[in-house]
Design a protein around this nucleic acid. Sequence first.
RNA 1: CGCGAAGUAGAGCAGCGGUAGCUCGUCGGGCUCAUAACCCGAAGGUCAGAGGUUCGAACCCUCUCUUCGCAACCA
Length: 719
Amino acid sequence: MDNEANKESKGAKRYLITSALPYANGLKHIGHLAGAYLPADIYVRYLRAQKRDVVFVCGSDEHGTAIPIQATKEGTTAKAIIDKYHPIIKQNFEDLGISFDIYHRTSEPLHHETAQEFFSYLNNEGALELLASEQYYDPEVKTFLADRYIKGTCPNCGFESAFGDQCERCGTSLSPDMLINPVSTLSGKVPELRPTQHWYLPLNRHEEWLREWILNEHKSDWRTSVIGQCKSWIDGGLQPRAVTRDLDWGIKVPLPEADGKVLYVWFDAPIGYISATKQWAIDNNKDWKPYWYDKDTKLVHFVGKDNIVFHCIIFPVMLKLHGNIVPQNVPANEFMNLEGDKMSTSRGWSIEMDDYINDWIKKENGGPQLADTLRYYLTAIAPESKDSEFTWKGFQDANNSELGNIFGNFVNRAFVLMHKLCNGKVPPLHNELLDETDKAIIEDIKNAKAKVENLLEQYKFRDAQFEVIELSRKGNQYMQKKEPWIVAKKLAEQPEVQKQIDNCLHLCLQLTANLAVLINPFLPFTAKKMLHMMKVVDKMLDWENAGKIKLLSAGYSLRSPELLFRKIEDEEIKTQLEKLKAAVKSKEAAKEVAAETAAATEVQKEAVAVKPEIQYDDFAKLDFRVGTIISAEKVAKADKLLQLQVDLGFEIRTIVSGIAMHFKPEEIVGKQVTVVANLAPRKMRGIESNGMILMAEDAAGKLHFINPEITIDNGASVS
RNA sequence: CGCGAAGUAGAGCAGCGGUAGCUCGUCGGGCUCAUAACCCGAAGGUCAGAGGUUCGAACCCUCUCUUCGCAACCA
């Protein structure tokens, strides 16, 4: 396995690494970071340190139906939304040290051209199918509806709010036409079916090679969860997948007969990797083609588990049809929970990258070391094989204990002792005095490189990072065994013990230099800071230097140490926990307000909406009379009904009225009211009602009688 | 109801057929160069329960119990 991994990577001439393109419709949280961006960045930094030819691309995904719809809701434009979020997300990544070579965007003309070319190529090759179908259309919003914007009753379990793509209750996969009583969630109206035609990618034609490629060739080097999900997809039968949609937001289908159609976002988005590579090549005066066409290029997609089939099945099919290379691996991560619950932006239960940056990195006692703290903890709990959990307490522990006490403190001890016992210079190494303990730590340094390297090649970032901390732990143990501060007490009488001190600190400093090289892919800001303390240039971080004990020359004077990591106090953790709870509450409140507003608007609409016009004759048919309530009693077994006797002057009527929730029987006796006198009799709860009392309903839903200003004769007619 | 995930030391996790392991925490000791840090040692688990397969099971199979999720987003 180890050999295979090495062979695989050493055979590659160049690397193309991608992270899933984030949707530019809102801020991204640390779960996204841990899943697709941080591991990719670690991998890329490692490759760069090895001087391999590597390009790391990403960018904003700015198409897709959610963006224009959200824009409509917010009363702004789709363009405004992506222009707002693209730069923020880009900056967030930069602040956290995610070192994309380019962070492109799919709204760029270059991307539009690239995607259109891709489509045309496939279409000309006969790789696509044109199929006619009927799709739901909302005449009010004048748009075809995306599956999840249609709700209706699930044909399987009867759940009334099933989405057009899936029932949230029974989990059945649906298509909109399966829904009973479909309703557009945009307008609330019943959508109508309209004929349309679309281009499809017939995945079913490619089952054979996909099976061979994924389930056979990659069965041992891809993650089990990835293989499992692909297998269940393939076994479930691959279906043709629509490549185009009837929308106006997106990339125009480059055919004259396709007016009003755009490429489906899933088709254009991954092509964003290609257009980003092109733009990078232009900016850097390079040729982009080998990265996508040469089989010596190793393509790796870093994604979250929700993205597996797109990167393992659909996009590879597209690439293959287009003559490109396919990915060598798709190391997908599972999800990261937060304090016992799933992360959810809408519920406020998440830590957005932007928030973390403002609360920690940009604080006065913050700085880039806090970016590294987050990187460290997210990697330490990375959901590589199953969902994991972020807790603020865990974050604090990881920082204070592993980073501060073990790693940071070791570096600090080495420097302080060197300044105290070796005049601030790297002491010489006296080979003749090396003992077993010294040899063991030298061995540990060498082994650490191999361990980290092997784990990284297998995308085991969590374990790889652990090995680096483990090396600093060994450093602490070594120092404790050697006790140079004790040896120093003998100096006055035995000056020759200085050599023992020299050896110990020489090795501790070499170990420190190794730590900088090894930690660099994980914690780049820390590595930088260590370079500064050691007064060496960036070049020392080259991976080939790892495992060596000649990184610092004897006699070289080093700077005074600075603490690599500050402690995180309980107070700070408490603040974050409270903030989290407060965020949930405010979101809940906002939702209630929104719901109330929506309800109120609904009522208003109803109130405003006037019934269809009628003619005078229709009105003349109604016979309104004034009458007086002479008795009232509750109807048994009916919450809302009162049985009334109303004196209409010429007769006394029994009328059953649904006003019990608003009036007590005794308080309405004697009231004058307006009655519809010629309404056909109707039985309610076994009592025949002969007429109706007119009522007006106020905004609060309270009923009020309609009656003459002053008491007049019973039986008077109203018109 | 159904689907999915999971139940291993106080907490968080690894192990997935061959004598139960890591980090943090706790307790005891050492050291005092260091960010009240570091080093050594110890306690603490019948690996949810019950059956079964096997020479042997935390790991495979069956059943039971319990917990969590099924919100958003989605390529």
